[in-house]
Design a binder for these strands. Sequence first.
DNA 1: TCCGATTAATGGACTTTTGCAACTATGATT
DNA 2: AATCATAGTTGCAAAAGTCCATTAATCGGA
Lengths: 169, 169
Amino acid sequence: MVQLKSKRSTDPEAIAHVGLDVLENVLSYYIRSLNMAVSRDLDEKLDGLEVAKGTGKITTLLLVDRHPGIRSSVIAQLVMRDRSAMVRVVDQMEEQGLLTRRADDEDNRAQGLFITRKGRELADRIRPVVVKQSRDFFPDLSDEEHRTLITLLGRTYRRIVGLPQQTPA
Amino acid sequence: MVQLKSKRSTDPEAIAHVGLDVLENVLSYYIRSLNMAVSRDLDEKLDGLEVAKGTGKITTLLLVDRHPGIRSSVIAQLVMRDRSAMVRVVDQMEEQGLLTRRADDEDNRAQGLFITRKGRELADRIRPVVVKQSRDFFPDLSDEEHRTLITLLGRTYRRIVGLPQQTPA
DNA sequence: TCCGATTAATGGACTTTTGCAACTATGATT
DNA sequence: AATCATAGTTGCAAAAGTCCATTAATCGGA
């Protein structure tokens, strides 16, 4: 069971009766809160794996592995970060030997990103961890409920980042 | 429609066919991503309102309004933040005249937080904004789907922060 | 009733992130 | 060729979060 860090300092009794006011019915509140919790938990699970600390390294690694030659600006858009923030992530990952940059043949302003052997190995290592962590984090959801969440949140996500909606099978 | 900031720099074509690898089915990925987007959007909507920049000020304000004398450590637990981080939030809000600290009658180590007139007025102002923003952010969800998300995510949230589960009506 | 352990709140120093704006180089437009 | 837009980059400064130590008060025995 995933629990809040240690700091369970406050008397459990004290918190049990706290109402969240209107936030009780505010979806974004739960998203913001759960984000913190789930991100921390993931960091722990990934501890030592060179991609810890969620700055988008995981997404970058997987996307580069999946799409050789992808541009950093595309990744930036998907992870909703500034281009300049992406540069730093790529810098770091290049130093770590996880990927390489190479100028695009057609457009010399752009450069494609390519995974290295080491990067691919890492990607293969973390894929199952990431998937498992996410599922394990929500033990109180049935598989169906879990799928429902992915479907609904994915819909909004795709709209926002400009990805086409999934065709309803 | 909520869209990503301005920076729609990249050619829409380039992004349309990008697959997210395993992240496609990772709930935490959507939560992390949407968190960024929804938080930014809220900041914009709240611009100028003294509680912008999501450091938990909104939650703090609403909770203090709802629960006079609540302790900062309880709020810290609910917003999943370090106690020392809470101190700074409370400091700031006290300076802004939104709330006051007063030693607890029963336990002199603790201090309760109390809202001021100004704080209450602000709380009344932002309540509808927060609720509306959250709903508007998910225009592609039906009311029922929206309720479903709140129910499911709320369940996990409550478990994590140690709030009792909602009795199924 | 005194001592040690515990808890609440706080303060300080530190590291990490991040967002913005400016800059270069290349490509596109007219 | 002149102008404008775009990809990537860099530096800077603000903001956030973490870690650790400190103060003060309470509680539980011996």
